[in-house]
Nucleic acid binder design. Structure first.
Length: 224
DNA sequence: TGCCAGGCCGGGT
DNA sequence: ACCCGGCATGGC
């Protein structure tokens, strides 16, 4: 087991001990997760919940039904999530893809090989790497490590990667040094968001942070 | 009260 | 290949 693996494992253990299970996107409503993955782009999750509630009240949490309504109507329903006009278009791009390629069946969509599905998702306007990986991990149960702004902040602050690290390298840092376990990746990502929220911005001094002991003297970027 | 959140795209150097 | 503005609501 490499030194990098040991450090990441320790990070996970410390975070889990401090915060416990985060219960992000429990797997019962897969379609909701897809919708949420787009709605949450650069947006507070609380706002997304309101938007999803609106869709549920309107009985629209199903691909065909949601694709039936006009784009402008969709935009109004998801308004609380912000960027509602672009997101309405992005949601419809995803829905069109699901309906045309898989007859709107999530089951069929996730029968696709994960690497193939990822490439196809990335072709959709409005779906980038983080959103695609969120869908694969949280909705599809595939062990893809999701990298976001918090992942970047926590990792660079602790000197586990240089400040100019890109998405793929950051993702590889986790995927190459942990067991490929979807529930581990799920929990780990959520925990990184939690610690990032609490400390990387609100408490830049890192006092009382579960990772306080793990600040390096000076950035020994973890290689390999 | 202002600042910012679980990004992504398109157009300009 | 970067860099940057636009997109928008609600919470703290």
């Amino acid at each position: 087991m490499s030194r990098t693996s040991q450090i990441l494992r320790e990070v996970y253990d410390r975070l889990f001990e401090a915060y416990g299970p985060q219960n992000w996107w429990p797997a019962d409503e897969t379609f909701e997760i897809l919708i949420g993955a787009i709605l949450v782009q650069n947006t507070n999750w609380k706002n997304v919940e309101k938007a999803i509630r609106n869709l549920r009240k309107a009985h629209l949490l199903e691909p065909h039904r949601l694709y039936q309504i006009p784009e402008q109507e969709l935009a109004i329903l998801i308004q609380p999530a912000g960027y509602f006009r672009v997101k309405a278009r992005r949601l419809r791009n995803l829905l069109r893809f699901m309906i045309e390629e898989y007859q709107g069946s999530l089951k069929r969509m996730f029968e696709e090989r994960p690497e193939v599905l990822r490439e196809k998702l990335l072709q959709i306007n409005g779906i980038g790497r983080e959103t695609a990986d969120s869908i694969l991990l949280y909705a599809g149960g595939h062990p893809r490590f999701v990298v976001d702004a918090y992942t970047y902040r926590v990792v660079t602050r602790h000197g586990w990667a240089p400040p100019d690290v890109d998405y793929d390298s950051l993702q590889a840092l986790f995927e190459d040094n942990l067991e490929l376990d979807a529930s581990l990746f799920n929990e780990f990502h959520a925990l990184l968001v939690q610690v990032g929220k609490k400390h990387c911005r609100k408490n830049p001094r890192c006092t009382n942070c579960p990772l306080e002991e793990m600040l390096p003297e000076k950035g020994p970027y973890l290689p390999e």
